[in-house]
Design a protein around this nucleic acid. Sequence first.
DNA 1: GATGAATGAGACTTCATTCAT
DNA 2: TATGAATGAAGTCTCATTCAT
Lengths: 190, 190, 190, 190
Amino acid sequence: MAISAKRQEILHAALELIAEHGFHGAPIASIAERAGVGAGSIYRYFKNKDILITELFMELHNKICAEVLEGYEIDKPLRQRFLHLSTSLLRYLIANPMVFRYLEQFHNSPYGTAYRRDRILGKGEGDLYRMIFEEGAAQQVTKNLPLVVLFALTFGPLLAVARDHILGFIELDEPLITQFTQACWDGIKM
Amino acid sequence: MAISAKRQEILHAALELIAEHGFHGAPIASIAERAGVGAGSIYRYFKNKDILITELFMELHNKICAEVLEGYEIDKPLRQRFLHLSTSLLRYLIANPMVFRYLEQFHNSPYGTAYRRDRILGKGEGDLYRMIFEEGAAQQVTKNLPLVVLFALTFGPLLAVARDHILGFIELDEPLITQFTQACWDGIKM
Amino acid sequence: MAISAKRQEILHAALELIAEHGFHGAPIASIAERAGVGAGSIYRYFKNKDILITELFMELHNKICAEVLEGYEIDKPLRQRFLHLSTSLLRYLIANPMVFRYLEQFHNSPYGTAYRRDRILGKGEGDLYRMIFEEGAAQQVTKNLPLVVLFALTFGPLLAVARDHILGFIELDEPLITQFTQACWDGIKM
Amino acid sequence: MAISAKRQEILHAALELIAEHGFHGAPIASIAERAGVGAGSIYRYFKNKDILITELFMELHNKICAEVLEGYEIDKPLRQRFLHLSTSLLRYLIANPMVFRYLEQFHNSPYGTAYRRDRILGKGEGDLYRMIFEEGAAQQVTKNLPLVVLFALTFGPLLAVARDHILGFIELDEPLITQFTQACWDGIKM
DNA sequence: GATGAATGAGACTTCATTCAT
DNA sequence: TATGAATGAAGTCTCATTCAT
């Protein structure tokens, strides 16, 4: 197995176990077993469990940002840009339920606390949303509310609906995704 | 100490510790110490830790339902009823940050998974929202979307904004609460 | 078993194992087994292994100081006081070989490093020796050398000869003890 | 790098690490890193860690013996020979603190136990001392005590004072070294 | 020959739960 | 009834040693 393949194997095993059973259900021994490596080997790739967990988060985060940027056109109208971002994000999350559940676990844990503020501050894909909200406020297209509130009106429903889809409470097909993201836009538009 | 006072003491201690430090930071020994009882005594009131945690959730849940119902008038217009429920709920959560954080911990843990479906099925205060959405759809006042999606459009932003307030990212005052709940209504209204 | 009896049992087990096999040969599990308690129980009496080891040292140290003071008469001539202390100490060490070997392990470990300076500074029985050396220098009875050197001339041979006795290289009987301590006195006297 | 240069590199790295941090602070990986070789390579030169440690001891021991013999004149008077040996040994130890600390670590570990008897039996430089003590007893110049006791009276203070110097509790300069070794002689002379 | 990735036994420590007092 | 000491399974991490490259 190539050197970096093993690292990915470990990250993948951690992703699956944590997504499925939470942090409690993912002891190092289980991660190692599922990854097909010895328990001690994990420590060659990650200094400790915290770092494994945090690096996994960062990889997933980067992946999502890249995904959402795909096809994003910065000179389109605000509404269209908003819908593009939200639709892409939602599609990605429900297509990758493990990623979604991992991120949920992560943000609701001591590990993730430090990274919550980042989202607010607009690291990553948040920055694109922030630009939309700021332009929107200037042009009186979106509501003149604090950024934090607009983020809540955007990500709150999106994550909730993704969760419900993944838990099987609803089946989000393309028409529904479209209707849903437009409803989100209704929430923030002037 | 009266028998049921001691039970409340234990629940309160658990609430505080779990809200503040998560489940990891709330071993039985600490809960007992903060409650001012012996560790063994907890097992007189609760068969095991899981049950303590679940019963605490149910008590908080009931408390919230009762709180939200306060002043609820079923024959007011849909919009007004929606705003009443959402405003009350949001006010309660930010006035009781420990409750909020406990519920977050709970829902993002193996314990809470089983109870997520309940919300969807309309146990508790969800039932009132459900009636609003169903009436709204019939009268073409609210969007004709699946209930689950409407729930997401309602609770998603509300919980997100409550979290941001509690984490100190924003200060929700009355005017902002009003603007915010109206924005939520904008999301679901036709 | 009385509460404090169990603590003593643990200390005794640690003493034996460490004296016999060194720190490497005394994992918590073995100490617990020899003490006849569960491994976890040790942590009820000692916050961690370091503290167990340090507290054991302090108990032994205090015991030795008490032992050596037995019958010590501060108004006797310097030589007699020196011989009393040294003889008592040597007798105690060879009568309690485990104690001796524990102290040797302790002083030659990261734990003990911090306590070496104490001896120099005259904590414990060292203080009595220090008084002898200072009076001796003033009266021109003992050599006018730095305290540290006089300590080395006193404790160095004493510990060496105790070790050899315990390892079976020599059998120290009373006459030999007497001759030996007098030789030590010869080393420091003017 | 010549084959035996690599072996020396490994021994030197082990010496430094063990002297500085004890056996706990000298895992094979660290020794290899400091020696500039791969971890596995160490096993080409030494069957296992125990043997590396033991061989290092033997090299140091031989070095010391050679050093002490330098300028030793077997037909000088006993006192002069004693002072020569002790002064040389002490000078060497305080000039090579790593060597001293390694030897201390070694002797106070499971590795070293087996080698303590050797010293008593007069391997190495001990043999020269033994001759002095035996001649001294015959000529009634030194005390008529068991060899083991005379060794203790000689090496005990010497090692103690070397340790104190290395730990910084005292600064041994030439005059002090002279005074000190004479005091040792006072301890063993008739 | 040399390397260093891989291994897994074993170390310390925590904690839910039991039970004698 | 209430207590809290006792337990031991389970978790994280280290490290001597091996072996494929």
